[in-house]
Amino acid sequence: MNLEKVVFGFFVLLAATLNFGFFLGDISRPELHSVYELFAAVVVNLIATVLKFGDRTQIGAVHLATSLVADLQLIAAAVTWTVAANIAGDGLTATETAAVVSLSGGALLANVVSVILLLVETVTYHRNQ
């Protein structure tokens, strides 16, 4: 067993699960989507991205790309949330919540691809043994 692989797998999976947790629930109801979960998803996604730095294999490059996409979507969601809650003045409306959650949904897709890549890597690793 390799500790590095455990940490890597842990963060990739955690990024996807947190993202999924935030995404879950009616898309336009702000009370179903915790901002803390969004925050956790952003942070864990960033860490997962940094973990993927410096891998020069083909699969490593795709891994990094999916993470960057997820980061981009989640940060966009966080910025949208900030604008809606702090700057626009009328709190989170249904439209704005829908925008935030759908952005995180896009990130979820990228995270799912990331998890699939992880599985593919694991499966081929075993087959080569």
Binding site: V43, L46, V50, L51, G54, R56
Partner: peptide, 28 residues
């Protein structure tokens, strides 16, 4: 030709992760 940028990324992995973690904890 991409070696230099990969070197930076690989060497900066741990410091960047520490930074993200500390920031996240503080903000939260």
């Amino acid at each position: 030709s991409v070696a230099a940028i990969f070197l930076v990324m690989r060497r900066m992995r741990v410091p960047l992760m520490a930074l993200i973690a500390v920031f996240a904890i503080s903000v939260l």
